[in-house]
């Protein structure tokens, strides 16, 4: 019996080996190397590297450009998380209700999510530029009243709108799945008690959807904090850093300025922020869950 068990364990280990090997090589090892690099003065791929303690972290936290990228990311995350959630919920309720052509509409809403963010970015630069100009000419909007969508004041809001357009369909699908898992009996019971459609949405469906809302919010916040492609394609972080997110800042520091050590310190800060947000959200969710009980 002991021998059989040993042979079994060996087989399971062999099954786990390929996944563990690629995972360690391309995730675990680079992760710990990043932490080590963040404590050094690594520059490009120069070989001599010196340990400098937490200097990179101190520099990042006092650096104006990095702090501005943090603030830009927070604003962007807030804008996109709230708007995408609202839009996705609204679309999910519309498609869950008595609407015709559901499949067609669902496909249209999800369509942008299938597109590469880079190419979506190009299309929207065109929309905010040439298309808007043509439209403004058509309705005779005076030059003074025209909005410079990708100018310093509006650029962040504009790229956030693009992101919402791109991702809302994805979160809508998750909401639809959540709505479909609510049992018909509950809704029927509420209807018999005299509840209208709006009452059912507010007092039955929304509360039952709370875990899904929590999950979508978590997914949105963590993905927004990592956002890179859209600002890269649309504005390259400009004008004057107005759309330089943390991810873009890390990229520029590491690959444009070649300050590898400093860039990895920034990236570890991003990691810690994401951990903190996730932990805080889970803590909040658990507290709420307990309060409800």
């Amino acid at each position: 019996m002991q021998k059989v068990k040993l042979r079994q364990s060996a087989a399971y280990l062999a099954f786990l080996l390929p996944a563990t090997a690629v995972f360690v090589a391309f995730f675990v090892f680079p992760f710990f190397k990043s932490i080590w690099l963040s404590l050094t003065d690594a520059y490009g791929y120069r070989q001599d590297i010196n340990f400098i303690g937490l200097k990179n972290y101190a520099e990042a936290l006092s650096n104006k450009a990095f702090r501005s990228s943090l603030w830009v990311t927070v604003k962007y995350t807030a804008l996109v998380t709230v708007s995408a959630n609202v839009v996705a919920l609204l679309l999910a309720f519309l498609l869950d209700g008595s609407t015709r052509f559901k499949k067609l509409f669902r496909t249209i809403f999800f369509l942008p999510n299938l597109m590469s963010l880079i190419i979506v970015g190009f299309v929207w630069v065109f929309l905010y530029g040439g298309v808007y100009r043509s439209f403004a000419d058509l309705i005779g909007l005076p030059e003074a009243l025209r909005v410079s969508w990708l100018g310093p004041d509006m650029a962040l809001i504009s790229i956030a709108a693009t992101a919402v357009w791109q991702c809302a369909g994805y979160y809508m699908l998750i909401y639809i799945a959540g709505l479909q898992s609510i049992s018909d009996e509950v809704i029927e019971a509420a209807r018999i008690d005299g509840a209208g459609t709006w009452d059912i949405i507010r007092h039955v469906k929304l509360p039952l959807l709370a875990p899904v809302i929590f999950m979508n919010t978590l997914l949105l916040i963590t993905s927004c904090f990592k956002t890179f492609d859209i600002p890269m394609a649309m504005t390259s972080g400009g004008p004057a850093g107005a759309t330089t997110t943390i991810a873009l800042q890390i990229y520029n520091t590491g690959f444009r300025a070649n300050r590898t050590g400093y860039a990895t310190a920034q990236s570890v800060i991003l990691f810690l922020i994401i951990c903190a947000i996730t932990a805080a959200l889970y803590f909040f969710q658990n507290r709420r869950g307990e309060a409800a009980e």
Binding site: F23, F27, V28, F29, P30, F31, K33, S34, L37, T222, F225, K226, F228, I246, A247, I250, Y251, G254, T260, A263, T264, S267, V268, L270, F271, I274, C275, T278
Partner: peptide
């Protein structure tokens, strides 16, 4: 690993 953003391991 799900908590680690790609940018954190990118350079290494």
């Amino acid at each position: 690993s799900m908590f680690v953003p790609f940018h954190t391991i990118m350079i290494a």
